[in-house]
Design a protein around this nucleic acid. Structure first.
Length: 274
DNA sequence: CACGAGACCTGTTCGC
DNA sequence: TGCGAACAGGTCTCGT
């Protein structure tokens, strides 16, 4: 799915506008069309249209990999999962293939949640914390100190890659940015979290932040057929570079499976021990 | 608690 | 060319 930088890029473009459309904040939601029932996590499809119609979009933000639309009464939370995207277009434009949920906004605009694989979900709720409450800290939040991050790592015995992907441990990391951050930090994806030294934990947090910041600066990554305008895919150092030389030492990048996820690393720069 | 397998879905790519 | 397998940015649930 879109990971933190891709979701952040989408939230910013909806909030601030883009060459293709004006900002969406302040607009009233006039009507909604639900094209795939399971896209809606809550409330029921019967209640949803009446509950959302008439509410205005007060602000648009991001928490972890969730898009957060704060409306006049409720919050609309959207998780893009693997293949979701948000499209803005004139209301009279035809539906796109794979549109799952379309909001008609005042001013003749339509905001569509488009999701090929149908894994994405939307929640309309007066209490967003019931959905977001269990998430771990935001990696880019300065409130997360090196010392606190080291303590959290030290308390876990799991392998470091699956731990970083656990949204209750740290919010927003996905497969791309985890592989890139571990490579930059020189850490093997299978290292047990509690064996990391304070210095390694500090390097890891700095590498996570650098990878996410670079992703945001490049407007995210656009891979496979899901093109969102970003170009971070042209700057991967390990992700999907199996067999190609490591930028630091020239060794061929290896791919292994870790917790069912394809995992890319340099066997020389990221030793299992030490 | 930690881990693996399977489920949820569609589409592309790769090997035979 | 055709066809099945493997794979894909995520997360949940169930069994050991």
């Amino acid at each position: 799915m879109p990971e933190l930088p891709e979701v952040e890029t989408i939230a910013r473009s909806l909030r601030e506008g883009s060459p293709g459309h004006p900002p969406l904040a302040g607009r009233r939601i006039e009507a909604v069309h639900l094209l795939w029932q399971r896209t809606l996590a809550e409330p029921s499809p019967e209640v949803f249209p009446g509950q959302i119609a008439g509410q205005s979009i007060r602000s648009i933000g991001r928490r972890a990999k969730f898009l957060v639309f704060t409306l006049s009464q409720d919050s609309l939370l959207i998780h893009l999962r693997m293949s979701g995207d948000m499209l803005v277009r004139p209301q009279e434009a035809p539906l796109a293939a794979h549109d799952r949920l379309v909001l008609h906004l005042e001013g003749g605009l339509a905001l569509a949640f488009n999701d090929t694989r149908k894994f994405g979900r939307a929640w309309l709720t007066p209490q967003p914390e019931t959905v977001l409450g269990r998430l771990g800290p935001e990696p880019l939040d300065e409130a997360l100190t090196e010392a606190a991050f080291y303590q959290r790592l030290h308390a876990a015995r799991r392998q470091v890659k699956p731990l970083l992907l656990d949204q209750t441990f740290l919010a927003g990391m996905g497969n791309i940015y985890t592989d890139e951050a571990l490579h930059a930090a020189g850490l093997h994806p299978l290292r047990r979290a509690h064996t990391l030294s304070a210095a390694e934990a500090g390097r890891l947090l700095a590498s996570i932040r650098a990878a996410l910041q670079e992703g945001i600066r490049r407007n995210g990554a656009s891979i496979d057929w899901v093109y969102r305008g970003g170009d971070f895919q042209n700057h991967f150092r390990v992700y999907q570079r199996t067999g190609q030389p490591c930028a630091l030492c020239g060794t061929a990048i290896q791919r292994i499976l870790v917790g069912q996820r394809g995992t890319h690393f340099c066997p020389v720069c990221q030793k299992q021990e030490e």
